[in-house]
Amino acid sequence: MYNGGKIIIGLIIFVGLIALPFVFSGKGASAKPEPKLDTPEILKLPETERKCVESKEYMKREHMKLLNEWRDWVVRDGLTIYTSSSGKQYTMSLQNTCMKCHSNKTKFCDECHNYTAVKPYCWDCHIKPKEKEL
């Protein structure tokens, strides 16, 4: 092979670079995330009312889009009430509605966000709920 040595060294470096993310993520990978829903605020509610603003599946998949829409509606359009598909009305507020029930940011938000390595900057401004030591 013409210049074989160089090509092989180049290939090794290339493969090494490509593999870097796997090497690094290997360390951070933790157990499957299990966001907790057992906050005192949620447990206080009667079993039938333990529902989020939309279905669990929808929230799991679309909560970021929903929050995006909420913030534009509230900040830009001055609309503060959200009527969910079940017809129930909520005040659109991350701090005052979402986190009132989900008062366990570390076990609820961070659990999955850390696992998927997304870093939303919500908490740079929004005040996180005070979490009681369990």
């Binding site: 829409e69 509606w73 001055g78 609309l79 503060t80 009430i81 959200y82 009527t83 659109m92």
Partner: peptide
């Protein structure tokens, strides 16, 4: 008309 955002009637 049923779901989505609306203004607080008390606003």
């Amino acid at each position: 008309s049923q779901t989505g955002p609306s203004q607080n009637p008390q606003a």
